[in-house]
Amino acid sequence: MLESLFAFVNKIDVASSVWVSSSMGMMLGGWLAAGLTIFMFSFLYKDNPFFKIAEHLYLGAGMGWLFQVSFFSVWMPKIWEPIKSGEDYLVLIPALLGLSLIAQFVPKISWVSRYGFTFVMGYGAGLSIPAELSTNFLAQISGTIVPLFSLGEPCLTGAALWGAFNSFLIFFGLICVLFYFFFSLEHKGAVKKVSNIGIYFLMLYFGAVFGNTVMGRFSLLYGRFDDLYKYSGSNYSYASIIIFFALVTFFVGSHFVDKKKKLKAK
């Protein structure tokens, strides 16, 4: 029964991939991509039903994709096939532990999920605590407080002096920022001055992060615009342009309808 279902799903998969790569499939794909992108951007003007459609489709399609990839890449080769071939029945143990997590949604048997969670917690903590301590704590301390000059190497070269300055700056910045977050001493006098310098270091970091964030967002926007430009060509039957103007017409129309309704209400 399951075998024939998998075969059927595979047939659909093959047929759909053949259709998608055909010229008609490519054009419809372009219309869909351009339409959904413009629908999503339409929220910048105001909330509207097209945005809602695109939002729900995005969530639904995302979940569908996640399910099929997990099913065919993990569940089938790692659980179903070893059991079916009688190669390895031990995979049932992690599979049952994983399935036990779903019991959380059924109040009467939700206690079953504890077995799965216990395993996840114990395994996760055992692996992550020593690794985190070593990589993100101890290694970073040794990376912050480094010797200004290396033994046996010339100190008065430009590179050595620049390296020493960098090492000192990192150490100095760290101390100042730590002072800013130390609340058991009243921030006045020398402590205030040091913690104020710490604020400048923090501001520099936030500035760098904000600058990079702006650049990142523009890059993402460019990606969508690039696709919209591609789909505005004749090989996609001017999808982006037609959908854009259709949406503008909708907004202009709905503006006048709303205005009429308001006047009537008055």
Partner: peptide, 14 residues
């Protein structure tokens, strides 16, 4: 991504 790039400074420095 550009957003997360500054956060990796410590790993690069070390």
């Amino acid at each position: 991504t550009a957003v997360s790039q500054p956060g990796y400074g410590p790993y690069l420095q070390k």
